[in-house]
């Protein structure tokens, strides 16, 4: 049943793919449009890319977004990993259920609420302590870390509970003190989860518009804020060009990830072959 290709399945696949990719293809095509008015075709041109590269505002937004994303991902990974470890490996401590619930709350909390509450926090902090002086880079980064770390914690938690504790026990049994077990056994095995968590936190931060708009101040525009504020005045061809570049970067990222996964799989197959050849 699954071996044969039915016409219906092929059609559904094509329709699904079209649904996802046709808008993007349109966007890419229009980014090469000479005409200033987006829906009107004026012939092929790279003019909007030129405009884009000359725009300081765009470059600043890209730099700010990347800076926030990297710092956010790094801190969220560290904090999220610690939180995940505490949840899975510290046994039953007092308030574990409450902590667990609070840890995942940001995942289900509407973004507007998160953004609003953080804004209130920053304003009252400023009144009480005079910090943060201006809203912008610092406040956005803090806001992003608070919700990204929940995602990282969930990834780490599920990976940890899937791993079991036998290897840790084996290391303890061989004389490794608990901290050595963490650094020599648990961390290396968590590494893939931490990388995944880092990438997810990085993407979440790059992606975020709502929370950033709440907690940003004058002059600090992340890329999504910039794109959104420009699009409010109508479709603009230079934004199409920017979007095309982002699509390209993402595509390259996905290709690299796929290649790494393919290589790992091949390595595993080779390992299996070595064992098979030598048995018994």
């Amino acid at each position: 049943m699954y071996g044969r290709r039915s016409g219906f399945l092929t059609f559904m696949l094509a329709a699904g793919m079209a649904f996802i990719y046709v808008p993007m293809i349109l966007l890419v095509i229009y980014s090469f449009n000479y005409s200033k008015i987006v829906p009107v075709w004026g012939g092929w041109s790279l003019r909007w890319y030129e405009t884009l590269f000359k725009s300081e505002a765009v470059w600043n937004a890209v730099a700010l977004s990347l800076k926030i994303a990297v710092i956010n991902a790094t801190f969220a990974t560290i904090l999220g990993t610690l939180a995940g470890l505490a949840m899975v490996r510290f046994g039953k401590f007092k308030g574990r259920t409450l902590f667990g619930g609070m840890l995942v709350a940001p995942l289900v909390m509407p973004e507007v609420i998160t953004g609003l509450s953080l804004l209130v926090l920053f304003i009252s902090l400023k009144q009480l302590f005079g910090w943060p002086q201006d809203r912008g880079f610092t406040t956005i980064t803090i806001a992003h870390i608070t919700f990204s770390l929940a995602y990282v914690a969930v990834i780490i938690q599920s990976r940890l509970s899937g791993m079991g504790e036998t290897l840790e026990e084996a290391a303890l049994d061989l004389g490794a003190k608990p901290f050595r077990v963490l650094t020599d056994i648990t961390m290396p095995r968590l590494a893939p989860g931490m990388v995944a968590g880092w990438l997810l936190a990085f993407t979440l931060s790059l992606d975020d518009l709502v929370i950033a708009s709440f907690v940003t101040g004058p002059g600090a525009n992340t890329l999504p804020i910039l794109i959104f504020s420009r699009i409010r005045l109508g479709l603009r061809p230079d934004i199409n060009a920017l979007a095309t570049i982002i699509i390209l970067v993402v595509a390259i990222g996905v290709a690299i990830a796929a290649y790494i996964m393919f290589r790992q799989e091949r390595q595993q197959q080779r390992d299996m072959q070595i064992v098979d050849r030598e048995i018994p």
């Binding site: 036998t166 026990e169 049994d173 004389g175 490794a176």
Partner: peptide, 10 residues
């Protein structure tokens, strides 16, 4: 466990 004179084969 890490200070016991025992080792275990899992």
């Amino acid at each position: 466990p890490y200070e016991r004179p025992t080792n275990m084969m899992f």
